[in-house]
């Protein structure tokens, strides 16, 4: 059986909030290393890969592989009943038809308990190869969100160009064009303000801004975001959490003219 206790419900609330507009029905695949989710959006353009490591829970117990088939709209309805600071416990049997969730207020004067019906989801799994990306950019997640939102006001697509002079986000729209160029920032006092660019070769790829703006809903999970880019392969947008947990989004590039 699964028993997983989170010190603060807000971790799961934020993760589900960040992905529920991209994917609706998906399996939480549980085993002794944690809770994983991999799901593509309906158009097969974006992929969500979540890993909540056992280390992010206290305690975490799951002695065999358990697939928890969830509708994220339903899960959101239940999670809305949890306060951010509540202690959240997930429980499921080995072949579950429901997921038990309890929310305990931190001063323990209130315990809420919900059982959520599960679905049998036959999910496609994609093999994601380990990739040495040509460019890895680490930046404040709020900055990335601002760039994507600002450019989406002008255009459907953004071209991300990483070179020795920095990283340039450029768009062309009906009303005109725009671009934002970022250079390396080293803020010793506040490392989360750093912009780091690791480059092995220049890259230039075009992506749909609609999806990038959607990924930015994960902004609350981490103060920094990492973009991994190589020519002609999907972009990886990564939000790292404590305990080695992460939320990753993959986005297929736009090609041709």
């Amino acid at each position: 059986m699964l028993e997983a206790r989170l010190e603060q419900a807000q971790l799961l609330k934020k993760v589900v909030d960040a992905i529920k507009d991209l994917v609706q029905d998906c399996n939480f695949d549980c085993n002794d290393s944690g809770i994983a989710l991999q799901a593509m959006d309906n158009s097969h353009v974006a992929l969500v890969s979540m890993m909540l490591k056992a280390e992010s829970f206290n305690p975490f117990r799951c002695d065999r592989n358990i697939a928890i088939g969830l509708n994220l709209v339903s899960l959101t309805k239940v999670l809305r009943a949890a306060q951010n600071e509540d202690i959240l416990t997930l429980k499921a049997e080995d072949a579950p038809d429901s997921l038990n969730l309890t929310f305990e207020s931190s001063d323990k004067d209130r315990i809420s308990e919900y059982d959520l019906k599960l679905m049998d989801i036959d999910q496609e799994h994609l093999g994601i190869p380990d990739t040495d990306y040509s460019a890895t950019i680490s930046m404040p997640s709020a900055e990335f969100k601002r760039i994507c939102t600002d450019l989406m006001a002008m255009s459907e697509s953004v071209t991300i160009e990483a070179g020795k002079d920095g990283i340039k986000f450029a768009c062309n729209g009906d009303i005109g064009n725009g671009s934002i160029t970022l250079r390396t920032v080293q803020d010793v006092e506040n490392k989360e303000n750093n912009i780091e660019i690791a480059l092995t070769e220049p890259v230039s790829l075009t992506f749909s801004l609609k999806y990038l703006v959607n990924f930015c809903k994960a902004q609350n999970l981490s103060k920094t975001v990492k973009l991994h880019i190589s020519n002609e392969v999907p972009l990886l947008v990564e939000y790292a959490m404590e305990g080695g947990s992460y939320l990753r989004f993959y986005l297929a590039p736009k090609i041709g003219d």
Partner: peptide
């Protein structure tokens, strides 16, 4: 206008 690509072109189904 560039064409939106499909992720399945890059990642094999397993």
């Amino acid at each position: 206008t560039p064409i939106q690509n499909d992720l399945s072109e890059y990642f094999a189904l397993i």
